[in-house]
Nucleic acid binder design. Structure first.
Length: 132
DNA sequence: CTTCTAACA
DNA sequence: TGTTAGCA
């Protein structure tokens, strides 16, 4: 399939798809016309790329990882065990990021819940906090 | 009409 | 990344 169809089917822009190729994340064949010719399996590959890129993984790591995921429901393909260490690092980085986001969300949620619909209780609040 | 490369009021 | 120009 050509770039337009892959873009439609993945939600990625054509611009992004060409960028992925430039980053060696995808290596579409070329039609005699010069148009990129993507394999059906690239649909899933693009989904993985978008997810991992959004999670902050460096493209070079994703580039190495993709071929390790090909044709595997779960684990990495044989010969990809060297990816384990960097992947564990990314996993831990995401765990920390999630913790920080959760803390921020909890703070915002509390502020929102404690805020009255209007300022009708403003005077009471002032009285309760009057210092001098 | 679709895709391509290159480039940036 | 968007977007556009100028081709094929």
């Amino acid at each position: 399939m050509r770039i337009g169809e892959l873009a439609r089917r993945t939600g990625a822009t054509e611009r992004a798809l060409r960028y992925y190729e430039e980053q060696n994340l995808l290596k579409p064949a070329r039609l005699p016309s010069g148009y990129r010719d993507y394999a059906p399996s690239d649909i899933e590959a693009v989904r993985h790329v978008r997810s991992l890129l959004a999670a902050g993984l460096p493209s070079h790591l994703i580039a190495e990882l993709l071929p390790c995921m090909v044709d595997t429901g779960d684990g990495l393909m044989p010969g990809c065990r060297s990816m384990l260490e960097p992947l564990e690092s990314e996993r831990d980085r995401l765990t920390s990021a999630i913790d920080e986001l959760t803390t921020a969300r909890t703070l915002l949620a509390a502020l929102i819940d404690r805020t009255p619909e209007d300022d009708s209780e403003y005077d009471a609040w002032m009285a309760a906090h009057a210092s001098a």
